[in-house]
Computed example of a mutant assay.
Amino acid sequence: MSRLATRFAQLKSQQRKALVSYVMAGDPQPQVTVPLLHQMVDAGVDVIELGLPFSDPMADGPVIALAAERALAGGTNTLDVLQMVKRFREQDQQTPIVLMGYLNPLEVIGYQQFVAAAHDSGVDGLIIVDLPPEEAGSLDQILQQYQMDQVFLLAPTSTDERIAYVAERARGFIYYVSLKGVTGAASLDTAEAAARIEKIKALTDLPIGVGFGIRDAASAKAMGQVADAVIVGSALVKPFAECSIDQAVDQTVQKVKELRAALDE
C-alpha cells in the first residue's frame, strides 16, 4: 500500500478524520520548511500538501500567491523542493507528502525526469491544479510506473459526468474545492458541500478531502463531519506575512493543534 492509502486506512480504523496541511515550500526562507513540517506533524498533521512555488498561481488567493513570491525571492525552485522532501524523509518515513503546483515547471523539467526525482525524494503524489484529467494521461502513466498518486479536483460546478470521470481515474484521494473562488476565500456553504460529497462518495471508495475556505476550528469541525479529510492552507500560511519567522512558526503550529483538537472532538 502507498503511504496515502496506509494513512487513510489507519485513520478510518480509528474513526478519525485526516488533517491535511498546506505549506509553501521555501516560504519565507528555504531553511524554514523542513523543521516546520516536522513540527506540524508532531502537532497533529496527517498528510502534508507541499506547495511548489510558481510565479503565476492562478487558483491561489493573495495569501498563498504572496507566499510563492517570497519563496521564489528566497531562491527556492522546483528541484529544491524535492531536496526538502528528501531531507524530511531522513526522519519521517510515514507521513504522506503530496506536491501541489502548476504544470509549467513540470513541462520545463520533463515529466519523466521530474517524477523519477520526486519518487526518489519520497513524494507520494501530485496535485497539478491546471492539468485537467482529460489531458493528464501521459503524466499519469509515468506516475503509475512509480506507484505515485495523481489527485484530481472537483468543484461545486462539476457536472455529474465530470464527477464520474474523475472518480474513475483519481488515486490517493479526491480533492473537493468547497467553493467557487480561490484559496482562502471566505464563504463556505457546509450544507452544499455535504450534498456534493455524498454524490461523489456514491461513485468512489476513495477518501474525499475538502479544501478552500477552511480557516479555523469551527469550519474544520463542520467539514470533518461530512468529509474524510479537511485541507487547510491560507490560515497556516498567513502568519509568515505578518510576523517574524519564529512567531509565525509558533502560530502555525498552534493553529494545527486547534484544528486537530476540533477534528477529534
Rank of each mutant, 00 (worst) to 15 (best):
V63A: 02
D216F: 05
A68L: 04
Q112R: 13
D42R: 13
G110S: 03
C243D: 10
P28L: 09
K257A: 11
Q15E: 14
S121R: 06
D228S: 07
P30K: 03
V63M: 02
A222I: 10
Q225D: 08
R16W: 07
A235F: 02
K86D: 15
Q91E: 13
A195Q: 15
L259A: 00
D56M: 01
Q113W: 05
K199N: 09
R196W: 06
V177W: 04
D205W: 05
G184F: 00
N77K: 09
Q83P: 03
Q39D: 11
E135C: 12
Q150R: 15
V23W: 12
A59D: 01
T252C: 12
L236F: 11
L19M: 10
V249A: 05
A195H: 11
K86R: 15
A186Q: 15
V63S: 01
V232D: 00
P62K: 06
I109M: 04
M40E: 00
Q145R: 14
G172D: 02
L99E: 03
A241N: 14
D120E: 15
V108F: 14
T252H: 06
I174C: 11
V249T: 12
D216T: 08
A73G: 07
A235M: 02
E90D: 07
S219E: 11
Q94F: 12
E242W: 12
K201W: 07
S21V: 09
A5V: 11
D120V: 05
Y111E: 13
Y102A: 13
P35L: 10
D46L: 02
L263K: 00
I48F: 05
A59P: 01
L153V: 00
G51W: 00
M24Y: 02
E168C: 07
P207I: 01
V63L: 04
G44F: 02
V108R: 15
D80Y: 06
I200M: 06
V226N: 04
D42I: 11
D46E: 07
L4F: 10
P132M: 04
V166P: 04
P57S: 06
T33Y: 03
I174V: 14
L82D: 05
T95Y: 09
A229P: 01
Q145D: 15
V47S: 12
E107Y: 14
L179H: 10
V166D: 03
A220D: 04
G44T: 02
Q14W: 14
A220E: 03
D120R: 10
K12W: 10
Q93D: 15
L36G: 03
S55N: 04
L236E: 02
V123P: 03
P133T: 14
V210Y: 00
Q29T: 14
G44R: 01
A195F: 09
V182Q: 14
A170I: 01
Y175S: 07
E90C: 10
V108N: 13
A71M: 08
E134C: 06
V182E: 11
M1I: 09
E69H: 10
E134F: 05
